[in-house]
C-alpha cells in the first residue's frame, strides 16, 4: 500500500498541501516541546535539560518500531522508503562540523525555524548563518568535489553493516534509549539541584 506518493496514490498539488500540513505538525511539535529556545537545547550538553534527547530518541524508536510493524503488516513497501545513502568520510566530517555548530549555535535548522516563528532574533541569526554556510559550501564545492563523493557505500542500513536484522537494531535502540532516559533523568536531577532555572522560554 504505502508509501503513497512514490506509488502514485497522491499526485500534483495535493503533495504540496500534505507537505505543508506535515511541516506544520513538525513545527508545532518542535515548538511545543521547547525547541524554540536554544538554552533548552544546549541543556543536553550541560546536563540541566535533556529535553532534546528525550524527544529525539522517543521519536526515533517510535518511528523505527512503527516502520517495522507497517512492513510486517504489508502496509508499507520498505524497498520504496528512502534510505539515506552513506558516504563515510564526508558524513563523518559533516557530523563533526554540525556537532560544533550545535554546541556553539544552540539550534539546528528545524528548531531555528520555530525560534524565528515566535520572534527570537538569535533564531534569525542562526538561520542567516545557515544560509551563508550553505552558500559558502556550494561556492567552494569544486575544491572538494572528489571528497564529497568519496566513501560511497550506497543505501546501506545499520543492520547490513552489523550483519543483524532491522528488528534487532530497533530492539537495541529501544533498550539503549530507555536506559539513556533513566540515566539522564538521574543526571538532570543532580544538576538541577544547583540551578535556579533549567527550563527556558
Amino acid at each position: 500500500m504505502g508509501p503513497l506518493i512514490p506509488q502514485g496514490y497522491i499526485t500534483g498539488q495535493w503533495e504540496f498541501v500534505i507537505a505543508l500540513l506535515i511541516g506544520a505538525a513538525f513545527g508545532f511539535l518542535l515548538e511545543s516541546s521547547g525547541f524554540s529556545s536554544s538554552r533548552n537545547i544546549a541543556g543536553v550538553f550541560y546536563g540541566y535539560n535533556f529535553v532534546v534527547l528525550r524527544v529525539f530518541f522517543t521519536a526515533m524508536i517510535v518511528a523505527m518500531v512503527g516502520l517495522l510493524y507497517f512492513d510486517y503488516l504489508g502496509w508499507i513497501d520498505m524497498s520504496m522508503v528512502f534510505v539515506l545513502p552513506t558516504f563515510l568520510a564526508p558524513m563523518l566530517l559533516g557530523g563533526f562540523i554540525m556537532g560544533l555548530g550545535f554546541v556553539i549555535g544552540g539550534f539546528c535548522p528545524g528548531t531555528s525555524y520555530t525560534a524565528c516563528a515566535i520572534g527570537k532574533l538569535d533564531g534569525f541569526a542562526f538561520l542567516g548563518g545557515f544560509f551563508l554556510g550553505v552558500f559558502l559550501f556550494s561556492e567552494a564545492f569544486p575544491l572538494f568535489e572528489k571528497f564529497y563523493y568519496s566513501g560511497d557505500m550506497g543505501n546501506i542500513t545499520i543492520g547490513e553493516v552489523l550483519h543483524v536484522s532491522d528488528r534487532v537494531v530497533a530492539f537495541a535502540f529501544v533498550v539503549i534509549a530507555i536506559a539513556a532516559f533513566y540515566v539522564t533523568w538521574l543526571i538532570e536531577k543532580k544538576v538541577r539541584a544547583n540551578r535556579t532555572e533549567s527550563k527556558f522560554e
Binding site: 529525539f56 539550534f107 539546528c108 554556510g133 559558502l136
Partner: peptide, 22 residues
C-alpha cells in the same frame, strides 16, 4: 555565536547529506 553555529551547520549539513532532522 548563533551566526557561527549557523554557518557551521550550513557547511556540515551539506557534507552530512542532511541536518539533525533529515
Amino acid at each position: 555565536a548563533a551566526i557561527i553555529g549557523g554557518i557551521l551547520f550550513g557547511i556540515g549539513s551539506q557534507f552530512g547529506r542532511g541536518c539533525s532532522s533529515g
